[in-house]
């Protein structure tokens, strides 16, 4: 089982991100269970959402306490929410920021993870370019696909298209495709198995 926790602020689409991820996993033929942390519903307040991914039906309903993957939509949360809490030592980390790990003051944290298990990239900027709106979801989900290879990019694109029909969907798909390329480039991946076989979850 791969356990994913997404951190953001109310209004940034944390819950939608977890939902879309679960749909993409479902489209890949695996099991997923996504749910919000049911935090306060104020815009801007710290919120979290969860998605579990597995090869068999998922029964547990507890929040994700020991994530294998942490996605941070808003890097200002790094300083007052324990976003890394319980993260598996060999887990994955994705942060939306145009700054670097040292600039964010999380160099050590990132260095503690295995090579190729973390990526900080400007998801909001990619979204602004195609959507003219600061909504980093599609970019982060594509980044997740590129980094963990636990869901295919094609299913992420299909989930986006189903949720946002029309031009909005098309623009979001452009965001996702660009983000996928950006993350793969940063990881130095040039192989052709872009949307290929998923990696096993860390033990």
């Amino acid at each position: 089982m791969l356990q994913v926790r997404i951190h953001g602020r109310g209004g940034q689409g944390v819950v939608t991100a977890a939902e879309l991820l679960s749909i993409a996993v479902f489209l890949d033929g695996k099991y997923a269970l996504a749910f919000p942390s049911f935090g306060s519903e104020r815009t801007g307040a710290p919120v979290a959402a969860f998605c579990r991914i597995a090869d068999r039906p998922i029964r547990t309903r507890e929040p994700v306490i020991h994530p294998d993957v942490v996605i941070v939509q808003d890097s200002t949360l790094l300083y007052h929410v324990d976003v890394f809490g319980g993260l598996h030592p060999e887990g994955y980390l994705i942060i939306n920021s145009s700054r670097t790990a040292p600039e964010l003051g999380i160099e050590e944290r990132c260095a503690s993870l295995p090579d190729g298990h973390w990526c900080i990239f400007p998801a909001t900027e990619i979204a602004l370019k195609h959507l003219h709106r600061p909504v980093p979801n599609s970019a982060l989900l594509a980044g997740f696909a590129a980094l963990t290879q636990s869901v295919s990019l094609s299913s992420i694109l299909r989930a986006i298209q189903e949720r946002f029909p029309g031009a909005l969907g098309t623009q979001n798909m452009e965001v996702a495709k660009e983000a996928f390329g950006v993350v793969r480039e940063r990881l130095g991946r040039t192989d052709s198995t872009a949307a290929g076989e998923p990696l096993a979850a860390p033990a």
Partner: peptide
């Protein structure tokens, strides 16, 4: 409420 009503599952 929430745990089932807001969860995405197959």
């Amino acid at each position: 409420g929430y745990i089932l009503t807001h969860a995405y599952e197959p």
